[in-house]
Amino acid sequence: MGHRDDPSRDLTDLPAGHPAPPVHDRHWARDVRSAVGCAGVLLALLLLMDWGVGTLTAWRAVIWVVLALLLLVVLCPSRVSAGEGCVAARSPLRTRRVRTDLLVSARCPDGVSQRLLLRDAFGDRVEIDPRVLIDNPELWHRLAEDARRAEASGFLLCGTTALSRVSARIDGETAQNVFKVSGLE
Rank of each mutant, 00 (worst) to 15 (best):
R107G: 02
A121D: 11
P109A: 01
S113T: 08
T55M: 00
G111T: 15
V32G: 06
G123C: 13
R149V: 07
P109N: 00
L42R: 05
R4C: 06
L43C: 06
R33S: 08
A106N: 07
D50A: 15
L184M: 07
Q114R: 13
N177A: 15
R33H: 08
G83V: 05
A29W: 06
D171L: 10
D110M: 00
S78I: 03
R149F: 11
R131E: 10
E145K: 04
D124F: 10
L46E: 12
R99Q: 07
L116K: 02
P19D: 04
A162F: 05
L143R: 07
V166Y: 02
F179V: 03
V62W: 05
D146G: 04
D13K: 11
A39F: 00
S8K: 06
C108R: 14
W28F: 11
V178A: 08
P19L: 01
D10I: 01
R33Y: 02
A29F: 09
L43T: 01
V104A: 12
A44I: 02
R115V: 09
G85V: 03
T100P: 11
L157A: 11
L47S: 09
V41D: 00
C38M: 13
D120E: 09
G17K: 08
T161K: 05
V87H: 01
L143Q: 10
T95C: 08
A58V: 10
R33G: 09
L163M: 03
E185V: 02
V166F: 01
G85D: 07
L117T: 08
G172S: 12
L102H: 12
A175S: 03
E185Y: 12
E127C: 02
